[in-house]
């Protein structure tokens, strides 16, 4: 069958096409992802029309002379496509690109880390990937605003223009502990991540001792880091008691801000306290 095809005006006003007179189809160079379009054809008889692209392959049986309609959402993956028209012995091909829609619909926001100590310069990084409604990365530069806020600290805000669809930034962790909201925004679209800003190492570790029958009750003062943040419960505090060449140790977790243990009371015993690599004060026990 000797077929002729016309890829004509698009129904929803997307583009215009020109007649294909030879072995190659003449198509507009680009379509917007997800848009609807129609292709008028010329000639008579039946043919098969293929569109092959990234992650997609379409096949349409075509009555030559009738327009071929593609509803919205038919071609949705951005990328390079090949169109093939096959009717009997003749095959004609054409190429075009599907580009992302200009309107952002979704942000994929990668924020790292999910948890970090307070007072860390550039300790938080965020990368925003801007996509259209069909998950195509929008390569056109777009302004992205980043905002990091913690209830007890000033808000850090920054605007970065995307390059190749990505915008990234670094922020400082606050000096006060708490959950920080890290927001990336493009137009009306935003994505939020929560960063836990946690206390650092204990800054000053002090314990007190008081007799309790045959034992000595040891208790730390509320532990704080150097920024004055209370060290979280569960942090291990190690008490060590040495006497007469013998030693007793207890790894006790902080509960409600303090660590408390009872150890045997020996006159002349030396009692020390530490948490991780931070050493605290030492007590020589003399019965009171």
């Amino acid at each position: 069958m000797n077929a002729r095809f016309l890829l004509g005006a698009l129904v929803l006003g997307v583009a215009s096409v020109s007649l294909a007179q030879s072995g190659s189809l003449s198509l507009p160079p680009t379509f917007v992802a997800g848009s609807a379009f129609s292709l008028p054809t010329t000639g008579s008889g039946k043919a098969v029309f293929y569109i092959v692209g990234p992650g997609q392959a379409l096949r349409r049986d075509v009555d030559l002379g009738e327009p071929v309609s593609f509803p919205a959402g038919t071609l949705y993956n951005a990328g390079h496509y090949v169109a093939i028209l096959s009717s009997g012995a003749s095959t004609e091909t054409g190429q075009f690109d599907v580009v992302p829609a200009a309107q952002p619909e979704k942000i994929s926001f990668l924020a790292k880390p999910s948890r970090l100590p307070v007072g860390l310069h550039n300790g938080i990084s965020g990368a925003a990937y801007i996509f259209d409604a069909y998950h195509n990365l929008i390569l056109k530069p777009l302004p992205v605003s980043f905002e990091l806020s913690n209830q007890s600290s000033t808000v850090q805000a920054r605007t970065v223009t995307t390059r190749n669809g990505v915008a990234w930034t670094e922020m400082d962790s606050a000096t006060k502990q708490g959950s920080a909201k890290f927001v990336a925004r493009v137009g009306d679209i935003s994505s939020t991540r929560v960063i836990a800003e946690v206390p650092g190492d204990p800054c000053r570790l002090v314990m007190t001792a008081r007799p309790d029958g045959k034992n000595v009750e040891l208790q730390t003062a509320p532990l704080r880091d150097c920024g004055g943040n209370p060290v979280p419960d569960g942090t291990i505090v190690t008490f060590t008691e040495s006497y007469n060449g013998m030693q007793s140790t207890v790894d006790a977790p902080l509960k409600q801000g303090i660590a408390k243990v009872e150890m045997p009371a020996y006159n002349g015993a030396r009692i020390s306290v530490a948490s991780g690599v931070v050493a605290g004060n030492e007590i020589r026990w003399n019965g009171r």
Partner: peptide, 22 residues
């Protein structure tokens, strides 16, 4: 965080039968 286990009365005994008891 529980249980808390206290290591009491550790005493190192030197050679020849070196050991830590507690």
């Amino acid at each position: 965080a529980d249980p808390v286990i206290e290591v009491q009365n550790q005493k190192f005994n030197g050679p020849p039968a070196a050991s830590l008891n507690g």
